[in-house]
């Protein structure tokens, strides 16, 4: 978007902003390998790809919403709700219900996303507030539903395979993540819908005046994000073999951070999925290395904040300088 003349043959979505998290990831791994040689092992790296998939799928959905200039704060309990739905159905013992567990969870995510989108488009409530309210409603429903205890149920074989299986020694979770990201990236780049979505992030009024049904586009993006959150919930439940209260809470901030580190502007319009993949990888590796170093949660939290700020500062100051 910013450069009309491309200096090389690279596609437009490969630029410094979106490459920064990849460079950061490599630096982290190389830097850590001096003290902890085990981080260079195939086992460790493929495990990281598997774990990064949960965050990555959330970030893929969040990217679309953030490209619109909106934000989805209902990620934690959409994820949690979907996990509860999926495990409750999978643990019911009924063949049909077990088979429907994953579709039902994804449908749940789509419905939540649709409510998010309708509040934002029809009532024009700022997404930050509306999705926050949705999040507390979902929390309320699941507390009421489970009685405050850990929900009953277990994951189905398919869910466990999605989360922990391997195909040709590549984690299935990683493949799923890449499939979703590629599909969404193609949606963004090759379809009219994707162009409208990005344009709304720049100037919603202009897109509306061009005759586009902006309500449909925005609601659609929130629904896609809801489905992504639900999918991550299904996989996370498959990984843990159960759903548990507040399983989504630790993912909210890293999701936004992954998208933003990947060069997507929080104001909308600029950025894309390629950067978000790198962002999710970077945050996962950073977290993992910090825990390999066995530093306390407190310091981990501080280092996390400082590194994210430093990367963002680097991006903005470079643009200005």
């Amino acid at each position: 978007m910013t450069t009309l003349v491309k200096p090389s043959q690279l596609p437009a979505w490969v630029n410094i902003e979106s490459l920064l998290p990849y460079i950061g990831t490599i630096l982290l791994i190389v830097g850590a390998s001096f003290t902890f040689p085990q981080v260079l092992s195939i086992d460790y790296l493929s495990q990281q790809l598997q774990i990064a998939a949960f965050l990555g799928i959330l970030a893929a959905g969040a990217t679309l919403v953030i490209l619109l200039g909106h934000i989805d704060l209902s990620v934690p309990w959409t994820l949690n709700g979907a996990a509860i739905v999926a495990t409750a159905m999978a643990g019911s013992g009924n063949e049909i219900l077990i088979a429907c567990a994953i579709p039902a969870a994804l449908l749940f995510g789509a419905v939540v996303g649709a409510i998010n989108g309708l509040g934002v488009t029809i009532l024009r409530i700022p997404s930050m507030v509306w999705t926050l309210a949705m999040n507390s409603i979902l929390l309320g429903i699941s507390v009421l539903n489970t009685g405050g205890f850990n929900p009953k149920g277990e994951s189905s074989a398919t869910m466990s395979w999605l989360a922990s299986g391997t195909v040709a020694s590549i984690p299935v979770a990683f493949l799923v993540w890449m499939t979703i990201s590629t599909a969404l990236a193609l949606l963004m780049m090759r379809t009219g819908y994707g162009r409208y979505l990005r344009s709304i992030g720049f100037n919603e009024r202009a897109v509306y005046l061009s005759g586009v049904s902006t309500k449909t586009v925005v609601t659609g993006a929130f629904m896609i994000a809801g489905v992504c959150s639900a999918f991550a919930g299904v996989m996370l439940a498959g990984y843990a073999n159960q759903a548990y209260q507040s399983m989504g809470d630790p993912f909210l901030l890293p999701t936004i951070a992954a998208v933003v580190i990947g060069g997507t502007s929080i104001l909308g319009g600029r950025g894309g999925l390629f950067g978000s993949i790198g962002g999710a990888l970077f945050i996962t590796i950073l977290n993992s290395i910090l825990s390999v170093m066995q530093i306390s949660d407190a310091w981990r939290s501080i280092v996390f904040g400082v590194i994210i700020l430093a990367m963002l500062l680097f991006q903005t100051l470079r643009k200005r300088g």
């Binding site: 901030l253 933003v260 501080i302 904040g305 400082v306 700020l309 963002l312």
Partner: peptide, 23 residues
């Protein structure tokens, strides 16, 4: 002066402040 959006700045700084509080 850093020209980062407030939502992202405070999201990250919150992580730092909570870390300090935990220490």
């Amino acid at each position: 002066y850093g020209r980062i959006q407030p939502i992202v700045v405070t999201l990250s700084s919150a992580s730092i402040f909570v870390g300090l509080a935990l220490i």
